[in-house]
Design a protein around this nucleic acid. Structure first.
Lengths: 337, 337
DNA sequence: TTATCAACCGCAACCGGTTGCACAACCGGT
DNA sequence: ACCGGTTGTGCAACCGGTTGCGGTTGATAA
C-alpha cells in the first residue's frame, strides 16, 4: 500500500553518483555539469520519479502550500474568489489548502492551527460572521506568517486587505434606483458586525442624503439567512406605505428578498425595483435578470493572492503600513430596475 | 519569519528525559508511566507545543490528508458534497485537500500528481467532463491508494463509487410530469460521455415507454453550458409543436432552460412544466420554486468519505468487488409542475 | 541470594531531500 | 615542478518526530 519507491537514492545508485548530486542536478544547481544534469533528468524521467514534497518541505520548511479560510464554499461569491486565487497560486507552483469555518468562531481558530501545523507559507482569510475576537489572527501575524484578508476583513490588525469599495458600490446602486424615480428605498443588510455590511449601509445613506431623502429606519432590515430575509421582506411589503425599491447587499439575502416579492405576486420592476451585489451566473438566474453591482469575486481572489505572494517571495517586504486595496464593482444593468 | 521553535526536544531537555519518551508520552504509548505522561503533557501545554505534522507525516508516511478532485467548486451541488465530506473527514481528524480540474483532463492528471506528492492517504474524485482516458486513475489504484469516485464515476475501474440512482430519479421525474398530463416532454441532458447523463436519459426513456409514448429525438437536447441550454430551449419552444414539459438534468442546464422560458414569456407551469435535479437553496431561487429530484450532494459527500475511510482505517479490506452505492433522490414538489 | 519478569525509558537509526564544507581534478600561468 | 583558482562531486549532518531493540530498575518468585 502506497509505494512511490523511486527516490533520489535510486537514481543515484543507478548512475553511480551521490544523492546530493542528484538533488542538485534536479534543482539545476550551477555547480553541476550539464552532462550530469542531463543524465540525471533522463533517468528521473524514465523512472517517473516524483520528488517527495513532504520530505523536501520538511527540510527547508517551505511547503508550497497556501492556506485559505472562508466562511463557506457555497453560493457564488466564494467559489469565484477561490477560482481567482487558484489561478495565481497555481502559476507560482503552489497549492491551495481550503478550509471552511462554517461561520463558527471555534472552527476558525481550529482551522488556523491546522494551517500552521501543515506548514503553510501564507494565509488568505475571510472571517466568520461570529468572530469578534481576533487574537488568533494576531498570533499568526506575530509569528511572521504572511496574512491577507479579503472581503470580510479585519481592521486594526497589521495585515493587508482586499475588498470591494462597498461604500461607492452601494452608493451607486442606490443612486441608480433614485435616478429611476424610486423614492422609498429599502435596504436588506446583513450582520452589522461585518464591516462590509456597515459600509454598504453607509453608501445607502449617503446616496439618500445627497438627494435630500430622509433616512427611514423602518426601511432598513438586517438579515443573516435567506429565510430571515424573506420574512422581513414580507413585513416590509405589507407596510401601509411599502417600499418601491429594495437593495439587497448579498446573494444570500437576495434570494430571500426575491422569494418574498414572488410570494406577494409583485411585478419586478413595475411594482418594486430590485438591486443587489451579485456574481454573474447568479444575477441572471432570476426573472428578470437583476441589476447588480459586481462583487468582483474573481478579481478579489487574484489580487489577494498576488499581494500574499509579494510577502512570501520578496525577502524584505517594504510596506510599513498594511495595504488596503479597494476594487470597484461596476453596475450591471439587468431588468429588475 | 515562521518560527514554531518548540519541539519535543525542548520538552525533553526541560524535563531531563529523552525525546523518544516525550514522543511516546504525547502519543499515549503504554510503555510510559502515567506520571511521565502527565508531566510531559503539562509542559507541552504550557509551551503551546504543536507537533510538526510535516515531520510526523514524513516519518510514518501518513499525512492525515484526504485528496479531493472536483470539476469545479461552483454552483450548488459540489459545495454540498464538500460539506458532507468535511463532516466525516474532520471527525476522523483528517483534512481535505481540494483541487479543481476545471473540466480539464490535463489539470486532472496534474492534480493527481499533486495529491500523491503531498502524501494524501486517500482520494475522492469526480471526473472531468473531458476525461476519456483513465490511466491516471488506474495508476492510483495500482499503487494501492484508496480511491472512491462519486457522482461522475468511472466504470470498469476497480474502485468504489457513490452516486444517485440516476435512472430511477430520472424515471420518477418524468413519471411525475406524465401524471400531470404532460405528453410532449423534452429533456435537456448534458455531455453524453458522462454516465450520469446517459443514465438520466435512460430513465427518461423508460418512463415514456412505460406510458406508451414514443421517443421523439427532436425533444432531446444535449447542452454543456447555460448559454447552450438557453439557445436549445428557445429552439425547442419555437418548434411548431413545442413541448409542454421539460426536464433539465442538472443545475447548470436548468438556469439556461429557465432563461429560455422567461425570454419566451411563458408561464410556468401553465404553459410549460419544469422539473430538474436541484439542490435545495437553488431550487427555491426560481419563481415558482422548482419541482425537483434531490441530487443528494451532502449525502453523497458523507457516504463517499465514509467508504474511503473503510479502506484507509481497516488494514485488510475485505471487498473483492468494488462497492457501488446508489442513493435515492427524493422528489420535492415545487410550483413548477 | 539469585534468577525472572514486567514496567519504563534511552539510544540510535530512520524517513528523503537539502546544503555547508571538504576535496579532487584540471586549468593556465610562472 | 609549483601555485592559485575554478569546476564538479561526495560526505555527512540536518530537519523533528517515530520506533525497534536493548538496558536499567525494582519487585517477585525460586
Amino acid at each position: 500500500m502506497m509505494n512511490n519507491p523511486i527516490t533520489i537514492i535510486d537514481i543515484a545508485k543507478l548512475l553511480g553518483i551521490s544523492k546530493s548530486t542528484v538533488s542538485r542536478a534536479l534543482n539545476n544547481h550551477p555547480d553541476i555539469s550539464q552532462a550530469t544534469k542531463d543524465a540525471v533528468k533522463k533517468v528521473a524521467e524514465s523512472l517517473h520519479f516524483k520528488p517527495n514534497i513532504v520530505a523536501s518541505s520538511f527540510r527547508h520548511k517551505k511547503s508550497k502550500v497556501i492556506g485559505l479560510i472562508v466562511p463557506q464554499i457555497s453560493y457564488f461569491f466564494f467559489p469565484s474568489v477561490i477560482l481567482g486565487m487558484e489561478e495565481i497560486v497555481h502559476d507560482k507552483g503552489y497549492t491551495l489548502l481550503i478550509l471552511q469555518s462554517n461561520e463558527s468562531y471555534e472552527r476558525e481558530v481550529e482551522n488556523l492551527d491546522i494551517l500552521i501545523a501543515n506548514n503553510v507559507e501564507g494565509i488568505l482569510a475571510s472571517v466568520s460572521r461570529k468572530t469578534k475576537n481576533f487574537d488568533h489572527f494576531q498570533k499568526i501575524i506575530d509569528m511572521g506568517m504572511p496574512l491577507v484578508f479579503f472581503d470580510r476583513v479585519v481592521k486594526d490588525l497589521n495585515a493587508d486587505m482586499v475588498l470591494v469599495d462597498d461604500i461607492t458600490g452601494s452608493y451607486n446602486a442606490v443612486m441608480h434606483l433614485l435616478e429611476n424615480k424610486r423614492r422609498r428605498i429599502a435596504i436588506c443588510t446583513g450582520n452589522l458586525n461585518l464591516l462590509i455590511c456597515t459600509n454598504r449601509l453607509q453608501g445607502y445613506k449617503m446616496a439618500l442624503q445627497e438627494k435630500g431623502i430622509p433616512i427611514n429606519e423602518d426601511l432598513i432590515i438586517s438579515c443573516q439567512t435567506p429565510e430571515e430575509a424573506e420574512q422581513e421582506t414580507l413585513r416590509l411589503l405589507n407596510l401601509e406605505n411599502p417600499p418601491d425599491g429594495i437593495f439587497a447587499i448579498s446573494d444570500l439575502t437576495m434570494t430571500g428578498v426575491m422569494r418574498g416579492i414572488y410570494k406577494m405576486k409583485l411585478q419586478v420592476p413595475k411594482d418594486i425595483a430590485v438591486i443587489g451585489f451579485c456574481e454573474e451566473p447568479f444575477r441572471s438566474m432570476y426573472n428578470p435578470p437583476l441589476t447588480a453591482i459586481q462583487p468582483m469575486g474573481f478579481e478579489i481572489g487574484r489580487k489577494s493572492a498576488e499581494i500574499l505572494f509579494e510577502h512570501i517571495l520578496i525577502e524584505v517586504y517594504a510596506h510599513a503600513e498594511p495595504q488596503v486595496i479597494y476594487l470597484e464593482g461596476k453596475l450591471v444593468i439587468g431588468g429588475s430596475t
